[in-house]
């Protein structure tokens, strides 16, 4: 329990990640009902360690999830390691990179800097929640069309930030776009294409996509 998400993933992770991806791709919410053994064991350890679990209900992508959390669990940890919503990425875990950006009551925030217990009662939207059924949402579609990524690690955070930007400012200027994604670092340097994708997404949204 004391290892970071990345440390644990490097130890046990790829198979679990593949599992989650396969589980999560069609119906992410199923993950909570089909928690794999490793995760279930961790939950038991957490409970035994301090008797400090807090019952909570998290509203994620329009679906209610009842679960017990340790107070120290971040929303990022719960999304990925408890609910299998692997679209939200873990990188710095210090509010310095933006990969874990989610919407909380419509506002972009870092899931790594939010305790899960504090997100109770809020409407949480992850990149998975921006799908239109099985189709990509307009921001996701625009990122594909404009080739707005290279390695892709920052992409889901970028997409969520752009969604927040366009909800508030449907036709942003280039300065507003730069500001809107300024909390998301792209180490590949795909910024120019990201800016074009935001403009494209604004068009797609305007067109009712």
């Amino acid at each position: 329990m004391r290892k970071s998400i990345r440390e644990r993933e490097s130890r046990t992770g790829l198979s679990r990640r593949r599992f989650f991806n396969s589980v999560a791709s069609g119906a992410a919410e199923a993950a909570i009902l089909t928690v794999p053994g490793a995760v279930a064991a961790e939950a038991a350890v957490g409970q035994a360690a301090d008797g400090n679990m807090v019952k909570t209900v998290l509203d994620i992508n329009g679906r209610s999830h009842s679960l017990s959390v340790e107070p120290r669990w971040t929303l990022l940890y719960v999304l990925r390691d408890r609910l299998g919503l692997m679209g939200t990425k873990a990188s710095c875990e210090r509010g310095e990179c933006g990969a874990c950006t989610v919407l909380i009551d419509g506002a972009a925030r870092y899931a790594c800097m939010t305790l899960a217990v504090e997100a109770t009662g809020a409407e949480i939207t992850t990149v998975e929640g921006l799908m239109r059924g099985e189709e990509l949402g307009p921001v996701q579609q625009a990122f594909v069309e404009e080739d707005a990524f290279q390695c892709g690690h920052c992409t889901s955070g970028q997409v969520v930030s752009v969604e927040a930007l366009l909800r508030k400012t449907p036709q942003p200027s280039i300065e507003q776009i730069r500001e809107g994604v300024s909390g998301n670092v792209c180490r590949c340097g795909a910024y120019a294409n990201i800016f074009r994708a935001v403009q494209k997404a604004a068009e797609l949204r305007k067109g009712g996509r």
């Binding site: 972009a108 925030r109 930030s161 909390g183």
Partner: peptide, 9 residues
């Protein structure tokens, strides 16, 4: 201050 995310929080 910071970024949009940090200012929202």
């Amino acid at each position: 201050v910071g970024s949009p995310q940090l200012r929202n929080q």
